[in-house]
C-alpha cells in the first residue's frame, strides 16, 4: 500500500501549478525515501526533476516501490478542488490502476475523494552527470520572475551573463533591446532578498523565454531561486519546497549558428 499525507494541500497545489505548463504526463516514482518525478517537455528541451522526501510528509507509507503514470492536467484539476488548508492524502494499492486523492477540511466536516486513472507510460530517463557549475546565483524568486516577464516583451530569448560584478539579463528583438543588471547584495536585511553570486569563471548563455516563463510558475514555492550555469551546458533553475524537497528545471541553451 502507498499512502502519503500532507497537513496542507497548498504545497501540492503549488507543485502542480509549477509543472503543468511543461508536462502533460509524468511518472511518479514512489519508494520508501519519497516521491520522485523526472520528465522532459514534449520538445525535449527542458526537464523537470521533482523530489519530495518521505520525512517531509506528515504520514508516509510505501510498502513496495510504485511507478504511477499520471496525467498532469487531470491532477491539476483535482488539486484545484482542494482548499489550501485542507489535508491531502494520496492513496494507492499495490499494482494500482488508479490513485485516490482525499481532501479533508480543517474542521473535519468535509471529506472529498477523487479517484484518477493511472496511465501506462514509456519511461524516458536521462542521466544527469554531477556537474561543478562555473556560476551559482541565488536571488529572490519574485525578482527572477519579474525579469523573465519584462524581458520577454523584447525577444524570444534572454542572455544571462554572470561575472564578479553581478548578473546581467539581456533580450534583443526587432523593436529594441533591454538589459537588467543585478549587483551582488552587499548587506541584505533579509536572507530571502539577497543576491548571492558564487563564481569560478564568467558565463554567458542564452535561453528561450518560453521555458524560463514556465519555470517561474514555481515562484510561490520559495522566496529564493538558485541558478546554476556553466559554459555550453543546460541551466539548472532550482526552488526549494519547504522542508520537504525541491523542484529543479534543466534547460538546454540556445547557441549561435
Amino acid at each position: 500500500m502507498f499512502e502519503a499525507r500532507l497537513a496542507q494541500s497548498a504545497i501540492l497545489k503549488k507543485v502542480l501549478e509549477a509543472v503543468k505548463d511543461l508536462l502533460t504526463e509524468a511518472t511518479f516514482e514512489c519508494s520508501d525515501s519519497g516521491i520522485q518525478v523526472q520528465a522532459m517537455d514534449n520538445a525535449h528541451v527542458s526537464l523537470v526533476s521533482l523530489n519530495l522526501r518521505s520525512d517531509g510528509f506528515d504520514k508516509y507509507r510505501c510498502d513496495r516501490n510504485l511507478s504511477m503514470g499520471m496525467n498532469i492536467g487531470t491532477m491539476t484539476k483535482i488539486l484545484r478542488c482542494a482548499s489550501s488548508e485542507d489535508t491531502v492524502t494520496l492513496r494507492a494499492w499495490d499494482n494500482p490502476d488508479n490513485i485516490i486523492f482525499i481532501f479533508e477540511s480543517q474542521n473535519k466536516e468535509k471529506l472529498s475523494e477523487y479517484e484518477m486513472k493511472l496511465i501506462n507510460m514509456d519511461q524516458e530517463h536521462l542521466g544527469i552527470p554531477e556537474t561543478v557549475y562555473s556560476c551559482v546565483v541565488k536571488m529572490p524568486s519574485q525578482e527572477f520572475a519579474r525579469i523573465c516577464k519584462d524581458l520577454s516583451q523584447f525577444g524570444e530569448a534572454i542572455t544571462i551573463a554572470c561575472s564578479k560584478e553581478g548578473i546581467k539579463f539581456t533580450a534583443a528583438g526587432d523593436y529594441g533591446n533591454a538589459n537588467i543588471k543585478l549587483a551582488q547584495t552587499a548587506e541584505a536585511d533579509k536572507e530571502e532578498e539577497a543576491v548571492i553570486i558564487d563564481m569560478q569563471e564568467p558565463v554567458k548563455l542564452t535561453f528561450a523565454c518560453r521555458y524560463l516563463n514556465s519555470f517561474v510558475k514555481a515562484t510561490p514555492l520559495c522566496a529564493q531561486v538558485k541558478l546554476s550555469m556553466s559554459g555550453d551546458v543546460p541551466l539548472v533553475c532550482e526552488y526549494q519546497i519547504g522542508d520537504i524537497g525541491h523542484i529543479r528545471y534543466y534547460l538546454a541553451p540556445k547557441i549561435d549558428d
Binding site: H44, P253, I255
Partner: peptide, 14 residues
C-alpha cells in the same frame, strides 16, 4: 540566429 539545443546533446538516456 540562435538554435535551440536538445537536452540529449548533454545528458544520456538511462
Amino acid at each position: 540566429q540562435t538554435n535551440q539545443i536538445h537536452l540529449q546533446e548533454y545528458y544520456y538516456h538511462i
